[in-house]
């Protein structure tokens, strides 16, 4: 058994990693909760956003944290257009269409990335992000601390906006009652596209928080999308607090699993937790019973 300090470090590291999972999962769960679309293109779009962050740094020297609003904004626009032009147009209602469209989209994006950026992994070296910060007995790289704080702040801002703004209320309204929404003059297709856009904007933000400590290659979205799907199922499909709790839980489980079982077996903890939740509480931790 490792010492308390090491366990504590494992938990803190897990929470830091979990914060970014939360961000990725919030986007996924928002898109599912509002549009009933399981977005299989999520990982590929995250990878695109990571490349955007990479190129902004490597070619234009833009700090990834400074790039966050730009990448998130660009991701929102891309998501909005993708929904209006492709996903919404073909996916409407039918599960098999949704699968084909979003999975197809991900294959196209992955291969375009492979063609344009080659399969090499790229990293950026953000010196200030590598500096260690002291937290009591712990030392954490600054990148992780920033990622943790920023992801939480973004989730809080998004939650507040969803609760207070008219557009946020409209998003929650169309999730359950489209006809009623139309009758109060809500442009339902626009709100759908905005929801998809916000889901993708979360990926843009996550990409900027990830890049200082992670690498990007055309396949790097996959690792995250699997974790994100697990997170969302764990927390309850479509549930905002579920994505939050699920993301942190997965981060900690992964980190402690790696600590106790070694890097190779560490990931098994995620699958075990996943199976347990499915067995004991199939709606997820915060899922609504339907």
């Amino acid at each position: 058994m490792p010492s308390f300090d090491i366990l504590l470090a494992g938990i803190v590291n897990g929470l830091a990693a979990g914060a970014v999972y939360v961000l990725v999962a919030v986007g996924l769960t928002l898109i599912y909760g509002v549009l009933h679309i399981v977005n299989f293109a999520h990982g590929s779009l995250l990878m695109l956003a990571m490349y955007a962050t990479y190129f902004l740094f490597a070619k234009a020297g833009v700090d990834p944290y400074a790039a966050l609003p730009v990448v998130a904004g660009g991701a929102f626009a891309l998501g909005y257009v993708l929904y209006r032009g492709v996903v919404g147009r073909f996916a409407h209602g039918k599960d098999e269409n949704i699968l084909l469209i979003t999975l197809g989209l991900s294959i196209v994006i992955d291969n375009l990335a492979l063609f344009l950026f080659t399969g090499d992994t790229q990293t950026i070296d953000v010196a200030h992000a590598q500096r260690m910060v002291e937290f009591g007995p712990l030392f954490l790289p600054r990148a992780k601390v920033i990622a943790f704080a920023a992801a939480l702040a973004i989730c809080a801002a998004l939650g507040l906006w969803m609760a207070r703004s008219d557009t946020g209320k409209a998003i929650r309204a169309v999730a359950k009652e489209r006809q009623g929404a139309r009758l109060v003059g809500i442009d339902v297709d626009h709100v759908f596209a905005v929801s998809y856009g916000i889901g993708i904007a979360c990926l843009g933000a996550a990409a900027c928080l990830l890049m200082p400590s992670f690498y990007v290659s055309p396949s790097s979205g996959h690792a995250f999308v699997l974790i994100a799907f697990t997170t969302v199922v764990l927390g309850g499909m479509g549930s905002f607090p579920g994505a939050l709790a699920g993301g942190f839980a997965i981060g900690v489980i992964e980190s402690l699993g790696g600590l106790l079982l070694g890097e190779q077996l560490g990931q098994i903890g995620i699958s075990l937790a996943f199976i347990l939740v499915l067995l004991l509480r199939p709606t997820g931790l915060f899922g609504a019973r339907r």
């Binding site: 409209a170 009652e177 009623g180 109060v184 003059g185």
Partner: peptide, 19 residues
Amino acid sequence: RRVFPDLTVRENLELGSYR
């Protein structure tokens, strides 16, 4: 009725003045 079931009564009313 077609009210928004997950939103509060007040939020439902607020959305009545969305447009």
